[in-house]
Design a protein around this nucleic acid. Structure first.
Lengths: 254, 254
DNA sequence: CGTCCAATG
DNA sequence: CATTTGACG
């Protein structure tokens, strides 16, 4: 099962450009999308109901903001929006699809601020998500968490770590949540397989043409619980896929 | 002197499309533009200071809203913004350029509402403008008033008069102001020369592709005071000039 | 339907 | 720098 995570930065814009994920990545089995920025009613049928795929969207109340999707060839046994935590479920940031005892999750972590309410919200989201995942694993499910975590974990995960020590996405609290998360039975499969690989990024600012120079951040991940690790065949980043300021990342399960 | 009036619906958009007036209408001597929708600082130099032209802009306080311009080959002897009536001069709707004793005015009349404050404002503007023009003529100036009047005067001036009897732009009060204006020493030179010409419009809604079907309105005019009438060589409409939902209209003076 | 703004990223 | 909405036309 090839599973891709892609922050599309507006799925309507991606469609307009003819760069829909299933057109660019035809060998995929599942797409976990983030920042779809649309309600289902706003989408053309080719986007909301692509032929040969089952598509599920979860949107923010607020129009044009946030939003995630899971689009799979196989019909999931169950699809559920949110974490089941009211205050964390208002922004279309989590969607999960169960295939047997495998839970595939598309998550769009909030972007934090150096301080203030969005900083607190992001940490609440991180903690709430981890509790949720632990429960699912304890209940016997395997978990594949695909998404835009909006966190670069270690200095190797961004081109300019020193300049960004005080910037959202690389704040100490975000990084240490990630460390604890990865010590609590979840695995950043791309990094475990490529421990010293420099320049592997999934996001580049649109400004100053830095994508050409590969001045980017790795903030999109696929992580799995320990029991699932043995089924991971492959983990990859696809920097040449165009259409967004993020590129897709993938995990293949046997 | 060939003088064109064109509501450009955003001069930056027109520039982006490579459809600037002086590129499309090289034989012009003066352009009176409306709905420039920009402050001068927002314009590229090729728009704010086109080579071979003298350009003057008057903008609304509010960004991206309204705004008029006069762009002429010859340098005017004097250029003044507004009517000199505080409350009518806040929206960048009037700019005048004097060439000797000829006053060329670029005017963007407000769009009215069936009732409410914008209806009153439009009628105030109409009345204020007429008083102003009378003063100029009384002072010995000739006047060429080019602009988007946002009024279709008679049924012949729009494709669907019956459907629009209660719609802004064809309201009784607007039409009767126009009638009185044209009885008070001003002349709609295009209509006087083409009294029965149907289908001569200067604006078409962007919606439903009605421009192809020529379902439009004539709301852009060049009018002159009686003394100037003898110098009018020609009055025309240019429906094939693209770039806006309005087309240019022109008056040529001997 | 299209131009522009403001918020968000 | 790009994508959205919302106001306005």
């Amino acid at each position: 099962m090839r599973c891709y995570s892609w922050n599309v930065n507006g799925i309507r814009a991606v469609a307009r450009k003819g760069l829909l994920p299933w057109k660019q990545l035809p060998r995929a089995d599942v797409f976990c999308l983030q920042e779809t920025k649309a309600h289902v009613e706003q989408l053309d049928p080719e986007v909301s109901e692509p032929k040969g795929w089952h598509a599920y969207y979860s949107s923010s109340q607020r129009k044009g903001y946030s939003g995630v999707a899971i689009i799979s060839r196989k019909e999931p046994d169950e699809v559920i929006e949110g974490l089941g935590v009211r205050k964390l479920d208002q922004e279309g940031r989590v969607l999960r699809a169960r295939f047997g005892d495998l839970l595939v999750i598309s998550a769009y972590f909030p972007k934090s601020q150096p301080e203030g309410p969005r900083f607190d919200y992001k940490l609440d989201f991180c903690r709430g998500l981890r509790r949720f995942l632990k429960k699912q694993v304890d209940a016997g499910l395997d978990v594949l968490l695909m998404g835009d975590y909006n966190i670069a974990h270690e200095p190797i995960d961004l081109a300019r770590p020193k300049q960004n020590l005080k910037n959202p996405g690389f704040l100490p609290e975000e990084r240490s949540w990630m460390t604890r998360f990865l010590k609590s039975g979840f695995h950043d499969v791309f990094r475990e397989r490529n421990p010293d690989l420099d320049g592997a990024y999934s996001w580049w600012s649109y400004r100053f043409g830095v994508r050409e120079k590969n001045i980017g951040w790795r903030i999109d991940y696929g992580t799995v619980n320990t029991a699932l690790l043995g089924r991971v065949a492959d983990a990859a980043i696809h920097p040449n896929i165009a259409g967004s300021d993020h590129c897709p990342v993938s995990v293949r399960l046997k």
